[in-house]
Simulated assay, not measured.
Amino acid sequence: MENEKDLSIQGAISTNRKLFEALRNDVQGVLSGEKEKIQRRRLCLPLEYSDFRELFISFGTYCLYQKGQKKEFVMDKNNEQIIEQLYCYATNNSAFSGDLDKGIMLQGKYGCGKSVVLETYSMLHNHIVMNYSLRQPLLTFIQSIELQEQIVKQSVKTFTQRPLIIDEFGRESKTVQDFGNILRPISELLSIRTDMGILTHGTTNFTLDTLSSAEFYGGMIGDRLKMMFNFIPIPGESRRK
Rank of each mutant, 00 (worst) to 15 (best):
N126G: 10
G103W: 09
L86S: 08
E72A: 06
G111Q: 06
E54D: 12
S155E: 10
L55W: 07
Y65P: 00
Q143W: 02
I142W: 02
M130S: 15
E84G: 08
Q154M: 05
C63H: 04
Y132R: 15
K114G: 03
M105S: 08
N126I: 10
I104R: 05
K109D: 11
L64H: 03
V156K: 13
Q81D: 13
L134R: 15
V152R: 07
E72P: 00
Y132H: 15
L139N: 04
C88S: 12
M123N: 15
F159M: 01
G108E: 05
G68D: 00
H125P: 04
N79I: 00
V117D: 03
V152F: 08
S50Q: 09
T158W: 02
A95L: 11
K114H: 03
L134V: 09
M130H: 13
R53T: 09
I145T: 15
F56T: 05
K71L: 00
T61R: 02
N92H: 12
S50I: 09
F159H: 03
Q136K: 15
S144Q: 01
Y62F: 08
N92L: 13
V152S: 09
I151R: 07
D99Y: 11
T120V: 13
L86Q: 06
L118T: 12
G111V: 08
F96N: 14
F52N: 06
D76G: 07
R135Q: 14
H125Q: 09
M105V: 12
G111Y: 08
S94G: 03
G113W: 02
F56N: 02
N92P: 03
Q136A: 15
M130C: 14
N126K: 06
L134A: 12
E149P: 00
Y62D: 14
Y132L: 13
Y132T: 14
Q143F: 06
Y87P: 04
Y62P: 00
G108A: 06
E54F: 04
Y65S: 07
I82Y: 02
F96D: 12
G113F: 03
G98H: 03
Q85K: 02
K114P: 01
S94C: 09
P137H: 13
D99I: 11
S144G: 07
M130E: 15
I57P: 01
Q85C: 07
N79H: 01
S50T: 13
K77R: 01
C63A: 14
I104W: 05
K71T: 09
Q150F: 01
E119T: 15
N78H: 08
S122R: 04
G111A: 08
N131Q: 15
G103D: 10
L55A: 10
Q107I: 14
I128R: 10
G68K: 00
I151K: 03
S144W: 02
K77H: 04
F141V: 06
D99T: 11
Q143H: 11
V116C: 09
S94L: 12
L138Y: 05
M105T: 11
I145E: 14
Q81N: 11
N126F: 02
I104C: 11
N92W: 12
M123H: 15
N131S: 14
V156W: 09
I128M: 13
Q107V: 15
S133C: 13
Q150S: 10
Q154V: 02
Q143N: 15
S122I: 05
F56W: 03
